[in-house]
Amino acid sequence: MNTQGLIYGYWLSGPDKGGEINVPDLDETLQSKENHWLHFDYTNEQARDWITNHSGLDTVVVEALLCDETRPRASTLNNGVLMALRGVNLTPGSNPEDMVAIRVWIDAHRVISTRRRSLLSAKDLASNIANQEGPETPGEFIAVLTDRLIARMQETIQETEDRVAVIEEEVITAESYALRSEIADLRRQAISLRRYLAPQRDAMIQLQSEKIPLFSGDDRLRLRETTDHLIRYIEDLDSVRDRAAVTQEELVNRLTEQLNNRMYMLSIIAAIFLPLGFLTGLLGINVGGIPGADNPYAFTIFIIMMTAVVALQIWVFKARRWF
């Protein structure tokens, strides 16, 4: 649809259930007692104007629906519920942790939602409603929407868990420094996802704890199940974050150990050649009286002497278990 900022407009109940609501009918729709859903792109000036001046919503609700940045939350106001929710960004080429926000207001007969970027969960809902398989009440709409938002997170979180499992295996066998940046990206993704899912969990729990007449018993049951899934996903993200931190520590320890071993070997080699350098330097000075200067076998004797010194050093190092 996407005309004058109206992305989706559908009747949820009544004789026109599943039918579209067009822009010219918006003002008339507000007078209807049939349940309906209006979904806007709040960056559109005409959509902002209608929500501000024609929707009849409270100023607080209008500001929340048109706000650029918002954390997940749920609030009751004037016999309605204002919610801000987040879903993973599944747009091709985007980062899943760059979560997409949707703001929703529900009251007795209407659902008004806004977004800036496309959200597949809203698209799923619109398709179901158009096929007359969607929710029929505002309370059921919220229950279905939250369920779709959480369901679409499952694949992203599962992929994150699989990635950390693969990295854990690679740390055991690989010695690549590239794993450090991959683990850092994984931790950043888990932290970013949890940043929005934690307050969304609190919002869902608040919906269940408050006695809101807009939600039926079935709606509350579905919200409870959705909240349980969300809590499990947050626990999975906590596990991923902790496993990534432990894996990063193990990788750093392995790399540090490798560096220390190499430095230790270099120190041993330097210790072996230190007396040899002293002897060659001592006998290489250009002054009179150097022993063996006129002896044709002096060089051979000197080589044998240095070999003996090296052998003695190696025996001492091994006796002290230095290597």
Results as ranks from 00 to 15, higher is better:
V62Q: 01
P24F: 11
E69I: 11
S55F: 01
H39L: 05
V61R: 02
T29A: 13
T29H: 01
N44L: 02
K33A: 10
L26W: 06
R71K: 15
P72F: 09
N79C: 04
E63A: 09
R73D: 04
E45G: 01
R71V: 08
W37I: 11
R48S: 12
D41N: 15
L26G: 04
Q46M: 09
D27R: 07
E63R: 14
H36V: 08
S55E: 02
C67I: 12
W50T: 05
L57P: 00
R71D: 06
L65C: 05
N78H: 14
W50G: 01
L65Y: 03
L77E: 10
S32E: 08
N44V: 07
I21V: 12
T59E: 14
I51W: 00
T52W: 07
T70P: 00
L66T: 14
D41A: 10
E69N: 11
Q46T: 11
T52C: 06
N78E: 14
I51E: 00
E34K: 08
D27G: 03
T76G: 05
V61P: 02
R48H: 03
P72D: 08
T52E: 15
E63V: 03
N79H: 15
E45L: 13
D41T: 03
R73L: 12
D27Y: 00
K33I: 07
P24L: 11
N44Q: 10
V23C: 06
D41M: 03
